[in-house]
Design a protein around this nucleic acid. Structure first.
Lengths: 342, 342
DNA sequence: TTGTATGCGTTATCAG
DNA sequence: CTGATAACGCATACAA
């Protein structure tokens, strides 16, 4: 038999106080004398006591469970979200629940999925990731059920709910700046699906900065659906023209990897003949050669922050001011100075 | 206020039976008349009742939590494991806990990590993934704490614990067979780190089949550490020789992707000049061009099976006969017939 | 600032 | 086969 865990009663006895006092210390309630707190904390340490989650949630209001709702095809992205959220949860003794919704479903079916999730077991809150963050039906349903939630990188109605994000607009602008500084004047842009609003923001940031820099001919564009396949196709579309761009910025890494494939097929060497920039700094960025230059998004940290937002604020008092974390420009091997005209 | 969930008492009242009878139906206990069961089930459906996990675990012995212990650098692999395990868990009303151990730590530190995990909260069982499956210290610690666990794809002492696996040996043999059938007679093999025992099994299966097929000169070998980088280096080592192989089998997809990069750098076209085979059918297999030929491992299903093993068997009665799932040879674009000597 | 009594929704023990 | 009733470990009102 593994040594059974200590109970609150045992702690109370050892500390010579009532069980309620122990409870107070555990829950950091006010109005407890330092002496008492000390005694209790000593007893807790002595017994290696940990509150029983099941009992707590049965007696109290909290369920000690937070859920992550996702529908992102990239295992890398989702794994980071899950990892970050899990870290923040377990630091506070919470469990993490994860549920995969299928946002391509019809409204009706999507609503059913959500209802199923909500009725499955009580949750203290949810973390929403793109593209679920921008589906009105999802937001409405959650609000109607009166459940708290935080959105990560939403685009739709930013102020409507608590949010954690990075400044996609500025990051894309930095990519433009970097490429411009290396002499590029002919650009291509590979966009994502309309459902991922952030792709639009990145486009806007990229174009806006180029314009501010004095570029006249705006980049040629192609849509890549955030996928490797789409990136290949978009790459071909951009490259097989009379005046192909010397630099292409893709709204995510998978598409950028596809663009690199298209470039190779076209006989273009990266970065000598073509500079390629991605976005996300995901796993694929280090699974292509040369390594992909990209924008690092602190996904784990964003998920942790989202969970903290959920857990550290009393009900009905979630901060509505978006929490904005820092991105980083990662200059690896897929971009370089423009090649002088021959 | 969201409609509060029905309780067992309410179900009992509606069905006109005692709460204990409802409990019996829920837990599929024996000795209950069909009539009673029917009435209770009707009431459950009517009230849309779901047992309260917190109360169940407080009163009973189960915690309704299973844990996944992992230390695999591939987010794709881990995400599939988590997804499959989660599916099996939530089907039975269990929560999934995930914990990342660092197996590169010293024994002492690793033991501490495990102790921390074990003391964090009660779990009904754990699912172990490689390379944790083959670390004696981990196995010993878990057994000493008397916690149940299932291993996925272990190599060390296969019969020691309940196990879910595929036949790596046979799968690697099929790769050899496939390549041999296409006329290849000069092979290269890229192995994984010693800590991942499965890599050794794949090597054995590959070599064994080639030998059986009548090959005299065994494949040249290089180690790739299961990483993309390692694959590139191994690829160079194999390709930059007097008589380079016409086909290379890498023990996982990441390394195979690296081999493809090395091939390109050497001016070799895949599959025209070199055939490449990977293993796992992970995300990267579809993030390279041409798409990688590989062996599909049903990772999600394996994780589900592991959880089922844990949950469907009474304590102390876990099946020790390994559960072996099917692999599939996925022939995509990275291999082809050997090119006739010029 | 501290302690006491009650109940959360189930399972488990024991009678019928 | 079925039903009372006592735990389970904690939070919550309420009292002191």
């Amino acid at each position: 038999m593994t040594k059974s865990r200590a109970t609150m009663t045992q702690v109370a006895r050892l500390a010579g106080v009532s069980i309620k006092s122990v409870s107070r210390v555990i829950n950091r309630e006010a109005h407890i004398s330092p002496r008492l707190r000390e005694r209790v904390e000593a007893a807790i340490a002595e017994l290696n006591y940990t509150p029983d989650t099941a009992a707590r949630s049965l007696a109290g209001a909290r369920a000690f469970v937070v859920g992550v709702l996702f529908d992102n095809p990239s295992p890398n992205y989702t794994m980071n979200i899950v990892g970050g959220a899990h870290e923040a949860c377990s630091a506070q003794g919470y469990h993490l629940r994860i549920d995969n919704l299928d946002s391509t479903e019809q409204d009706r079916a999507l609503a059913d999925q959500l209802e199923a999730v909500l009725s499955h077991g009580r949750c203290d809150g949810f973390v929403l990731t793109p593209p679920l963050t921008d589906i009105p039906l999802v937001l409405d349903t959650l609000e109607r059920h009166d459940v708290r939630f935080v959105r990560i990188a939403p685009v739709l109605a930013p102020g409507r709910t608590p949010t954690v994000q990075i400044d996609d607009f500025a990051a894309a602008g930095a990519v433009a700046q970097c490429l411009w500084g290396m002499g590029h004047r002919h650009f291509g842009f590979v966009g994502g699906p309309p459902s991922h609003g952030a792709a639009g923001t990145r486009r806007a940031g990229f174009f806006s900065r180029l314009k501010a820099l004095g570029l006249e001919a705006m980049p040629s564009e192609a849509s890549g659906d955030f996928s490797f396949d789409g990136g290949i196709a978009a790459g071909f579309a951009l490259l097989r023209t009379a005046t192909p761009p010397t630099a292409i910025f893709a709204a995510n890494d998978d598409m950028a990897a596809g663009v690199m494939v298209a470039a190779a097929q076209c006989g273009l060497a990266v970065p000598r003949d073509l500079s390629v920039f991605g976005f996300d700094d995901s796993w694929v960025a280090l699974s292509v050669w040369p390594y992909l230059s990209t924008v690092h998004q602190p996904i784990r940290a964003m998920a942790s922050a989202a969970v903290s937002l959920l857990l550290d604020h009393p009900r009905e008092a979630l901060a509505l001011e978006p929490v904005t974390l820092d991105w980083t420009l990662i200059e690896r091997g897929s971009h370089g100075p423009v090649r002088p005209e021959r």
